[in-house]
């Protein structure tokens, strides 16, 4: 991953500092269990700029979630994390647990996929939000509860005072996800990681939650990392898109650039697999052929090689993730379109 030394030429909104809020470099996560080593993240590098939304796209098991949880030390003890993740200039990887704890929720907050399982079933909504408030402030119980109700209003939960004394099972899925967002916002984080935050919701609710996220992002000037397998979501909401495969980045570009000019065969295959209304009824949905690689036995060379139509002998060596065009990074020897990459 030596190609990463060069500056990102990501378009930056006027008045913003070019210094990235989060800079992840060569992040690696391995899980060691009973002799087998699972390589979940293998040299992942990306940057998140303040106030922007980065969509991290990939199939299940591509390391999207693990990579984001590793930043905040939220992985189980069996995980071995190496590499670098600098948040506003401070290295997070290897930071002592106590210091990391002070940053969880305050610097980087997270919203998870399943709002039903992600809330404590035995605690009132208000108490769960207030707990996040108190973790990073000296407010007393009463004041924190008031703040919690305020936050629940902020995420447009109807009747926040009443909902605050209810339990998670009394709320709908969409309402629970709003509660999760209220918890995440409690300490006004600078970066919000939404880990498949809308996947478990129906399409209408999904759109509502996304609108809310975009709204809150603008209001608080937060950066957002949107982890998803849904390219449509990325195209609609994110400014930047990072495509992951087998624990590494394979293509990265601002959304307009990426969707106008896909270079990496895997990204192209993913795009081809998005169901489209114009398609002939009853025709088979196109899928990416083959299976994602077994992360316990990663092949040498390009991990997408076995499923790639453009693969040849050159792919026996892993292609570096390099900025081939200004702002457009990819890892492939046979990038289609544009001038020859190498």
């Amino acid at each position: 991953m030596t190609g990463l030394v060069g500056e990102f030429a990501t378009p930056v909104a006027a008045g913003e500092v070019a210094e990235p809020l989060l800079e992840v470099t060569d992040l690696r996560v391995r899980f060691r269990t009973r002799g087998t080593v699972v390589h979940a993240v293998n040299g992942l590098s990306y940057r998140v700029h303040a106030g922007r939304m980065l969509a991290v796209i990939g199939e299940s098991g591509s390391g999207k979630s693990v990579g984001s949880r590793a930043l905040m030390g939220l992985l189980p003890e069996t995980a071995q994390v190496s590499g670098s993740a600098r948040f506003a200039g401070t290295e997070l990887i290897g930071m002592p647990e106590r210091e990391l704890r002070a940053r969880r929720g305050a610097d980087i907050a997270m919203v998870f996929q399943d709002p039903t399982r992600s809330l404590n079933p035995t605690m009132r909504i208000g108490a769960q939000v207030a707990e996040a408030v108190r973790a990073h402030s000296s407010l007393n119980r009463r004041a924190a509860l008031d703040k919690a109700v305020e936050l629940l209003g902020l995420v447009r939960l109807p009747a926040p005072e009443r909902r605050a004394v209810e339990y998670p099972h009394q709320l709908s899925g969409g309402m629970r996800q709003r509660v999760m967002i209220a918890i995440a916002l409690a300490a006004r984080p600078r970066l919000l990681v939404a880990d498949e935050a809308t996947t478990a919701l129906d399409v209408t609710t999904q759109a509502q939650i996304m609108e809310l996220l975009v709204d809150l992002q603008e209001r608080f000037g937060m950066a957002v990392v949107l982890i998803s397998h849904d390219l449509g979501l990325a195209a609609s909401y994110a400014q930047d898109v990072l495509v992951m495969y087998a624990g590494r980045a394979v293509e990265y570009a601002p959304a307009q650039v990426l969707f106008a000019d896909v270079r990496m065969p895997y990204t192209r295959a993913l795009l081809g697999a998005v169901p489209q209304l114009e398609r002939e009824p009853h025709s088979l949905l196109p899928v990416v052929p083959g299976q994602p690689p077994d992360l316990a036995r990663l092949p040498a060379g390009c991990p997408f090689r076995p499923r790639c139509t453009a693969a040849d002998d050159a792919c026996g060596e892993a292609p570096p993730f390099t900025e081939h065009e200004p702002g457009h990074w990819w890892a492939c020897w046979h990038a289609d379109g544009g001038e020859e990459a190498r």
């Binding site: 905040m72 969880r104 929720g105 997270m110 992600s118 809330l119 707990e131 996040a132 973790a135 990073h136």
Partner: peptide, 15 residues
């Protein structure tokens, strides 16, 4: 080790 709400709680930054 297995419950999502534990991850949520830890992500809040509580002890």
């Amino acid at each position: 080790q297995g419950e999502d709400y534990i991850v949520t709680a830890r992500a809040k930054g509580i002890g």
